[in-house]
Design a binder for these strands. Sequence first.
DNA 1: CGCCGAGTTGAACTGAATCAAGAAACGTGG
DNA 2: CCACGTTTCTTGATTCAGTTCAACTCGGCG
Lengths: 191, 191
Amino acid sequence: MNKEEVIKRICETYAPLSRACQQELLDNGMMLFLEKNHILVREGQHSDKTYYIINGCARAYYLKDGKDITDWLAFENEFISSIISFFTHQPSPHYIELLEDSVLVEFSKSKIDELADKYHDFERLIRMVVTKTMLSQQEKIASMQFYSAKEKYANILAIRPDITQRVPLTFIASYLGITLETLSRIRNPRN
Amino acid sequence: MNKEEVIKRICETYAPLSRACQQELLDNGMMLFLEKNHILVREGQHSDKTYYIINGCARAYYLKDGKDITDWLAFENEFISSIISFFTHQPSPHYIELLEDSVLVEFSKSKIDELADKYHDFERLIRMVVTKTMLSQQEKIASMQFYSAKEKYANILAIRPDITQRVPLTFIASYLGITLETLSRIRNPRN
DNA sequence: CGCCGAGTTGAACTGAATCAAGAAACGTGG
DNA sequence: CCACGTTTCTTGATTCAGTTCAACTCGGCG
């Protein structure tokens, strides 16, 4: 997939853009080819970038008292960024790390704001991206409030059946808010 | 506070609007004076309204297997709506209920979408509202992943010291994802 | 071949839930 | 303004899901 196709796909997913706006966006997205384990953002950095994943996957995580807690997982055709840093210009509390060799398109906040100012249709697209993210978070909150460890695991498997092939169990566990040991027991068919 | 002042305040909080847009928004917001315990939205309804709270407070909650789980609390100068229904046009999984006699301004989704189409600056305002909501949710997720019952209670008290005077402990407990009994023990100074 | 990181299994522990009973506060009507 | 019933909150005893700590297994890779 090349950059043109990425832009086209983003328009289809979120909201259409004029030719001119598409072209400017194209000029301002940088394609990155990076290896598994590459760290896109470190704790304490000011990160004003967002990354659209063409291929591969990534996780955002916190280090809290030495413990590694996965906060977000993103796959093909999703955006990932240090949302706190990106939207509030504060230093990032997250790390963002690639879990596979990945192809990304990087966009900077300043360019996004500039384009949102210039093009009404781009402003709408950003609104749609943010709205979608908000709805995913709403789902995550509901899942944390309602479901047992077992149910949360079943939920994530239903949404993304290949996740155990792509993401180490430690990260899945901490994404679900449980320990690796608990996840391992859940997965054991005898329980 | 009258409607003009509300619009002005919203512009200050989120993003400025042209005179024309402010006027149209004004014409389309309906002021409501409602009593404590009034239910704004019921489970299963299609709710395409959002409410800006001028005075009072409200909660969104689920009924899950007969258990009442508070999902969101909102106070003066905040919006509340059944976010799933509002943004996805699905039937609401939430109830929304007033916790005090309240003054609200009601806006309908169709008008908001219409204005967002017509005015670039209004589109931006909506983007800002959604972004802010998303950031609050991010905080809530982090608080659920990191903190013990005691810490979560301390957090919410720090943000809103008068909450125990305004919101029954049952709702605070379920908002924090703990039981009423646990909250009661936490509050007991001997523990 | 042997090491190392990822995952599994076991046993003991714990924070919070559940169940149950009672106390305090609240509001409504007489 | 008080009495009574209802709702809200507290306290206690018990249980349980999930954590913690520790030892072990397995598979891949230098």
